[in-house]
Design a protein around this nucleic acid. Structure first.
Lengths: 335, 335
DNA sequence: TTGTACGCGTTATCAT
DNA sequence: ATGATAACGCGTACAA
């Protein structure tokens, strides 16, 4: 491991000169161009890399960000993996190390939080928490000097930068796609109010009537396979005729699709189904599933971007990304 | 952020005394018990945490391990996510930070490797590389003082500690399960020779004959949905009668299952199908899929364990974990 | 039992 | 244009 001192010693110049040249910060003065070039050359051939620990010590930062991710009930959707891919690549580019933690609930989050303090990490990215009660904990971190970025559907706190996906647009996009494919009696499973609003807006824009009977709603969001099944069975039992259905996850959409199939309804011939997340397994079914992608890799990158803004002393602005349509056979117009 | 100096100043003692007491290493000397207690007390109430950068600088280590994961063709299986969960929790426990990178191929790996050197990271965990050609690069890292652990099915190099899953046992377990469920004409898709060996061993142990016609083999491993479909269509076209099939991934198993269904074969009534990985979506299908889990969370933990051994100067031993059976309806004996 | 001195690698400041 | 010095926080060898 070669240091500034090594280079300086070998070339018979001072450490500070080498530091100035290699760090690019020459202050108010300069350095003889040929000498500077020689120093850079020497550093390169000796494989010099600045020691991160020393820089961190001097700067008073750590070059580390904690990434706490709520591992919620939608495993296999690839969401976590994609977000992480975005975060890690952006972090590496920025020279930031990661302190990763997956937490299952508010208690787990608080436990993980105990290992987060200045001098250990510079910032904290929290993903997937719905818990409003954690707001206070996050503000406490901010007060302690930790930069905080949340990765949620909706900002938790105006003082905390958030990156998220426009969920109303998710609902609108999915519903609008079904309309475009010829659907006129479109059902909706409610797991998220913002997406529900997008559903109604899409109907309005298409001049289609809103019918409460076409909406399935339960006590609390679940996004599960079973929920999709239950929703469709309930529609069928009540005699509600649908030619399209907007589910709230791919898992839920598959449950719905299979429930339709069990009842003899053909997808996409009789009814078209669309999910959300664009999970890898969308392509694996007997009927490939259309979906709305939340572009999670870009989401992760945006989170690190917001973090870097704060670390550089800039004001971090919240970001709202747009979802993308991924049409497949389950919503194909030609059956 | 409170430092040793702060504590020492407030209590009117020297920094080194506080350091000795708090680090627990008193050297060949001691400290007055009551004073030591008072120091510890004060540190606790002032919320003292040792500065990692300073320690890293002094010790010459970084407390950082790079984790390079080959993001191969089985997305959504949850493998990467699970391994990462194991790695991150174990790393956090050990006070290690992560430098995460997902690489797509050998070139991407080499590119990522350029950011790995002593003074930046202490060790490197490489997961999912099949590439033999990377062996030289890894040995070069070792020579540079980086501890290396691979996370592969088979050790790449005797000098490099490896943690992996017993793949022959995967094949044996899956096949043995089908035998136990009453199958007598069991097919196999070859994507991995070691699992194929396990398949033959299970047949031998059950006293069943090996028939080459019941084995589907293509040019190279793929583990894909399409491969599963092709395999089954080929069996059917050649008139090979099967009452069980061992696929090499859950995706492949689903392709096979759907191909059987398309041909009017009922699963599990006419033929039983089992996959590998225990992906989350195994539970989502119209027929829940049996699978063999590779226990990836434990795998990740074991990798960090091997890394810690090396960092502590101990000899790192390779580890081979056993897979676990996850039976579901697709191999149920009662149809 | 306690304190002093030094060095790890880097950079900002000030002196030359 | 270049160099000397100090400081970041910690741990340790050595002195008192």
């Amino acid at each position: 491991v070669v240091s500034l001192k090594d280079i300086a010693g070998e070339m018979g110049v001072s450490v500070s000169l080498v530091s100035k040249v290699l760090s690019g910060r020459l202050g108010n003065t300069g350095a003889r161009p040929d000498l500077a070039r020689a120093i850079r050359e020497r550093a390169r051939e000796r494989g010099y890399r600045r020691n991160n620990a020393a820089v961190a010590l001097r700067e008073g930062r750590q070059g580390v960000i904690a990434v706490f991710i709520h591992r919620h009930g939608k495993p296999g959707s690839g969401i976590v993996e994609s977000v992480l891919q975005g975060i890690s690549s952006a972090a590496t580019t920025a020279g930031l190390k990661l302190l990763l933690d997956f937490f299952p609930d508010a208690a787990g989050f608080r436990a993980a939080l105990r290992s987060v303090h200045p001098g250990l990490v510079d910032g904290l990215i929290v993903g997937g928490v719905a818990h409003r009660e954690l707001r206070g904990d996050l503000r406490a971190q901010q007060r302690a000097g930790i930069r905080v970025v949340t990765l949620l559907d909706a900002a938790l706190d105006p003082a905390i930068a958030n990156v998220g996906v426009d969920q109303e647009e998710v609902g609108r996009l999915a519903t609008g796609h079904l309309v475009a494919q010829g659907c006129r009696r479109i059902g909706h499973i409610v797991d998220m109010e913002s997406r529900f609003a997008g559903y109604r807006r899409a109907l309005r824009q298409a001049g289609l009537p809103y019918r409460a009977e076409r909406v399935h709603r339960e006590d609390r969001p679940e996004f599960s396979y079973a929920r999709g099944q239950r929703a469709v069975r309930a529609f069928l039992a009540r005699g509600v005729a649908l030619d399209g259905l907007v589910a709230q996850s791919d898992e839920e959409a598959l449950g719905a699709l299979h429930a339709f199939a069990d009842a003899g309804r053909r997808v996409p011939g009789d009814v078209k189904v669309i999910g959300v997340d664009d999970a890898p397994y969308c392509a694996f079914g007997s009927v490939p599933l259309s979906s709305v992608s939340q572009n999670c890799v870009r989401l992760g990158e945006a989170a690190v971007g917001a973090m870097r803004d704060q670390l550089a002393g800039r004001r971090a602005r919240s970001v709202m990304l747009k979802p993308t349509l991924c049409p497949r056979r389950s919503t194909s117009a030609a059956p």
